[in-house]
Amino acid sequence: MAIKVVERRPLSLAERTYLPQILAGLKVTWANMLRPPVTLQYPEERPAIPTGYRGVPTLVRDPNGREKCVSCQLCEFVCPPKAIRITPGAIAADAPNAHVEKAPQEFEINMLRCIYCGLCQEVCPEEAIWLQSQYSMTGTSREMMVNNKAKLYELGGTLPDGHYKWDRKKAEAERQAHGGH
């Protein structure tokens, strides 16, 4: 195999004075100075958040307005820094969604603990908890940094649902009750 020996040229006199290089550098920085700045003036200008961004975890409702969380507490157990605290509760027997049986009575995510890992979203069997586009959580006390259930639903809003799992279960149950298979 032919080996090509690259000639290592000693520095020329001009190069050894550093001056041409310095002048070239000054030219580069001058050109940079004339370019518009890339700074985003943050509080007034906000960055565009890409879809799929994993910001503050929130709770969501399905398009029918049903709260999706069934307080199975999987997220509470998986959460590495133990940021989630759930108080499970029962759904009243006369509620339209009584067949779901359980819903959280209180749901708290301590944003001082949360590390935005997304494990809660990954583990949730109901697709009820989502890390959405809110990237800035601020507060002036520790209490303000704990998102309670009301706040979580306010942040989460409604997300489209592909399954309507509980509606289908209800329809199936009713069909069977009417003697079908």
């Binding site: 920085t29 940079n32 100075m33 370019r35 700045p37 890339v38 700074t39 003036q41």
Partner: peptide, 10 residues
Amino acid sequence: KASAWIQGRV
């Protein structure tokens, strides 16, 4: 200011 301009800042 000048350092900011050179580095594309404000």
